[in-house]
């Protein structure tokens, strides 16, 4: 083993070390910036479509920045009523998230505190989450045709609720298990009922987890494509379905695709940045606390 001799300040060795360290820092920043640019470039590209004129979109070589940020595309979307897709997504994702959060959280409480059904039930619930959407949507489609629920809000909302319940149950189970049980015991000794304990102790204590899980549950429903594609036609059109509707046989409406993608994506970006602290736990199914 060698013993490092620390050189006196100002000596050539320490200057060399300092330079090496600053070179390393510069290299790190260069790498960080390069990676960030590469990862955000596609986002930039699709968002820019919304502001480009048709000539700029269909030009060779491609134009990177629109000459002026014209809002014609957005105006056209408003005029043609295409913004309704955002509204539809908001309703279906929003309502299903509320349902999934409520029923999922109380079920999670049952699993966390009473060990209802033991380990098998908890794992069974989680494994439902792992079934490919296509496998779920196919039999549901057959059932919905029979029920007359195709192309209805409630049909889509119920499916989103069911699909997100395992996630909510699993996540909230973890967050509830993190609450010291003495808080609930104390409230019970004080004379509060079971429901009151849920309302006054468990929900406030799990507040951060509730918000974070709500955000991720909403994003799953908001970003869904395949369920909406199969189960809706013309009455209920969510934003991802609307986006793909502009891939025509002869012509692709890139400007509209860009504008709609931007409107469907920016709110999610915002929510994720706000809830970044809970991100790792949310996407790793609670396995990594982050």
């Amino acid at each position: 083993m060698t013993v490092a001799v620390r050189a006196a300040p100002g000596s050539s060795a320490s200057l060399w070390q300092a330079r090496r360290r600053s070179l390393k820092t510069i290299a790190r920043y260069a790498a960080a910036v390069a990676i960030t640019v590469i990862f955000l470039f596609p986002v930039f590209w699709i968002f820019m479509m919304a502001f480009k004129t048709p000539d700029e979109i269909f030009s060779r070589p491609p134009v990177w920045l629109p000459a002026d940020f014209n809002l014609d595309t957005f105006k056209a979307l408003v005029r043609d009523g295409d913004l309704g897709a955002i509204w539809t997504s908001l309703i279906t994702a929003g309502v299903s998230t509320i349902f999934a959060m409520f029923f999922g959280t109380i079920a999670a409480y049952s699993l966390a505190r009473f060990k209802t059904g033991g380990r098998n039930l908890a794992i069974g619930i989680l494994s439902q989450r792992m079934i490919p959407p296509i496998v779920i949507v196919f039999p549901v489609f057959l059932a919905y045709v029979f029920l007359g629920w195709i192309d209805t809000f409630h049909g889509l909302i119920i499916l989103y609720t069911a699909f997100n319940l395992p996630y909510v149950i699993w996540m909230m189970r973890g967050y509830i298990e993190d609450i010291p049980i003495e808080l609930e015991h104390s409230a019970l000794v004080d004379g509060w009922s079971r429901w009151q304990v849920l309302l006054r102790v468990v929900f406030p204590m799990a507040r951060a987890g509730l918000f974070a899980t709500t955000v991720f549950t909403f994003i799953f429903a908001w970003n869904d494509y395949i369920f909406a594609l199969v189960l809706t036609r013309t009455e209920v059109v969510t934003f991802p379905v609307q986006v793909t509707s502009w891939f025509g046989q002869q012509f692709v409406f890139w400007a509209r695709i860009g504008a709609m993608s931007m409107m469907g994506t920016l709110p999610i970006f915002f929510a994720v940045i706000v809830f970044q602290r809970y991100m790792v736990r949310g996407i790793s199914l609670g396995a990594v606390k982050g």
Binding site: I35, T36, F39, L40, P42, V43, W45, I46, M49, I219, W222, N223, D224, Y225, F239, P240, V243, T244, F247, W254, I257, S261, G264, T265, I268, F269, V272, Q276, M279, I283
Partner: peptide, 18 residues
């Protein structure tokens, strides 16, 4: 850097198609 992950996969597909 985490943003691409939360973009709807269908939008991601559309973006790269472009």
């Amino acid at each position: 850097l985490v943003l691409p992950m939360v973009i709807a996969p269908i939008v991601a597909g559309a973006t790269w198609r472009l």
